[in-house]
Amino acid sequence: MSASLLAAMACFFTATPTHAAEINLLNVSYDVTRELFKDINPAFIAEWKKTSGETISINQSHGGSSKQARSVADGLEASVVTMNQANDIDFLAEHGLVTGDWVKRFPNGSAPFYSTMVYLVRKGNPKQIKDWDDLIKPGIKVIIPNPKTSGNGRYSYLAAWGAVIKKGGNEVQARQFVEKLFKNVPVLDAGGRGATTTFTQREIGDVLVTFENEVQLVRTEFGDNFEVVYPSTSILAESPVAVVDKVVDKLHIRKQATAYLQFLYSEAGQDIIAKHYLRPRSAIAAKKYAASFKPVALFTVDEVFGGWKSAQKKHFDDGGEFDKIFSKK
């Protein structure tokens, strides 16, 4: 075979396209969204295949929100992060992984859904737990994950503190209340799902404080063994999302990662979100699933604590209010 023919064949095989390589995304998320993304991911994969012709696979990583953020900062190559507090994405922005204006990249402050903190109690509510004041009564065991590693724990802490403020209390009274509350916490799990396991399977505690969607999923799984209790007031718990710029640009997958997060805002995505007891932004989905979401007076982190950065510095940084409170436990 002549050298010229070999060269021509080499050019032919080099130029002939093969099947496009599958595109892989990694969604690093918080603890209690496992079930949500089990439904979101195949819906997006099918939609993206239909509209673009590309085949995508999506892997998930779950854990305490702040712990997950640290893993990404330490090198876990997340394409996107779907967290439960803005503070964790700000942390990634400070490490140069996410653009500083991430909150403006998607609607609603880049939070496609939200939740709030409610209570899960055992069948019949034997300890008659109805509001925040009941959680500090002697002998009540409260299950809350660690606010140092879990956004779930942070929201629970801030919801309790803010409830005192919203009732007209001052900072000293709020601190005293939260100190009493954590004296009633027998174990601090690293994340929200671990706390749920402690309460439901290890059967520790009288009440679990966690996200509304988590308690509803427990009710679905365990039936009549548990009841949901809504406090008179609670905190608005938004779930922000962001593309991890440094990773998607390195892997050339920005278009796909952005489309994935945009899908969360679509009517199809919002419908799935509402089915999982997460409060949607879509008016259509909110109306359709209105029976799933009990009205509750909500306050924001900005309103009571001056924003997440202020709350983090005062309450959760090393040597902050939580460390001082927990040292007295």
Rank of each mutant, 00 (worst) to 15 (best):
L264D: 00
A69I: 02
I45G: 04
R254N: 03
V229G: 03
K329C: 12
K328G: 12
P295F: 11
Q173R: 13
T33D: 10
A291Q: 15
E238Q: 15
D131K: 07
T197N: 06
A86F: 03
P138F: 06
L236W: 03
L120I: 14
M83Q: 04
A163F: 00
Y260Q: 04
S239T: 13
E203A: 15
A160Q: 01
T300D: 10
V228T: 14
R154Q: 09
T300I: 07
S29G: 14
T16N: 10
G194P: 00
E47A: 10
E221Y: 11
M1E: 12
R70I: 14
R105M: 12
S57N: 15
G191V: 06
F106V: 08
M117D: 01
I284S: 14
E221P: 07
V32Q: 15
V72N: 01
G194H: 00
A268L: 06
D39R: 01
N59Y: 12
T210K: 02
E221M: 13
K288R: 12
A311N: 05
Y277T: 12
F299Q: 01
P17F: 06
F326T: 01
E214A: 09
M83C: 07
G168V: 06
I143C: 03
S110T: 09
T200N: 08
T198Q: 04
S310D: 14
S57V: 10
P107N: 09
D323T: 11
L208C: 08
N84H: 11
Y119W: 13
L135V: 05
I58R: 00
G168W: 08
V209T: 02
N108W: 11
A311D: 09
G63V: 06
P138D: 06
T18K: 12
S71V: 14
L236A: 06
W102H: 06
K255L: 08
A195D: 02
G194W: 00
A21H: 11
V142G: 03
M117T: 09
P126W: 00
V32E: 06
K329D: 10
P240K: 02
M83T: 02
K314I: 13
V164T: 07
A297E: 14
M9L: 11
M83L: 14
E179L: 09
A283C: 07
V72E: 00
F226M: 06
M83F: 10
D133Y: 07
G96T: 09
K130A: 13
S65Y: 00
V32D: 07
D134I: 03
G319V: 10
T196L: 04
A21G: 12
P240L: 03
D39M: 10
S232G: 14
T116Q: 09
V241Q: 05
V81W: 02
A73F: 08
V172R: 15
A190W: 02
Y157H: 02
V209I: 12
N146W: 06
G96C: 08
K250Q: 15
L97M: 10
N41K: 09
V72S: 06
